[in-house]
Design a binder for these strands. Sequence first.
DNA 1: TCAAGACATCGACAACTGTCAATGTCTTTG
DNA 2: CAAAGACATTGACAGTTGTCGATGTCTTGA
Lengths: 116, 116
Amino acid sequence: MPVATLLPLTDVTACCAPITREPLGAHDAETLAKTLKALADPARLRLVSMVAAHDGQEACVCDLIEPLGLSQPTVSHHLKVLVDAGILSRDKRGVWAYYAIIPGALDALAAALTTP
Amino acid sequence: MPVATLLPLTDVTACCAPITREPLGAHDAETLAKTLKALADPARLRLVSMVAAHDGQEACVCDLIEPLGLSQPTVSHHLKVLVDAGILSRDKRGVWAYYAIIPGALDALAAALTTP
DNA sequence: TCAAGACATCGACAACTGTCAATGTCTTTG
DNA sequence: CAAAGACATTGACAGTTGTCGATGTCTTGA
């Protein structure tokens, strides 16, 4: 398994200048779109905000299923999308998998959307 | 035709607190997701940045087709999605339709993603 | 070693999305 | 009025996505 696949699929942190500064190249647009797509879903937005608001800024899947109102496989799927996008981190401790927001990820995304 | 459909389909400006402050409600998540979905496409991201970087912060469809490399109907379609999401405005002058970024729209979106 | 439980993965299916060719609408100009 | 041109709309199609039930994997505790 190549190392690259262990890294976030989309690294928006070092992606591109704010989109209102200069025309976005095709490649940068693809990268930024992938990250935005990961966030552009009601269930995933709620997951991110639930994780952020949880005690210790982390939460396990079992904390998220019931308030979200979706099945366990679906919640796992959404969390995987967010991890692959570099928005959440996953830390397996014992039987539980704890998810947390990667510091700076959302800010980097926001920065790409605005004029500084 | 009810008046409501003339307004932006998603009004993220007055949508919700930053998603990292408190768990997002189902309705707010839906609203925010709709706006993000509008932006979460490479072609539309490039359109937004091309419009922003164009002379006078506005551009007509004919300015955008060739650099984007997509067909005219497809470009029109993407522009409509962005207008419906409240990100771009459309101003028809003569034969041309000029699109511009609605001031504050992207900033409101960015603000919803970060802790202030 | 076995049972229970937390989580991930798989397979399937309906719904949605991006794209284009063809066509329609409306404005300008000859 | 007729022709040309800018843009929107329609219809169709392939590809993607969100969801769930069923099943697999791994850890803990008896």
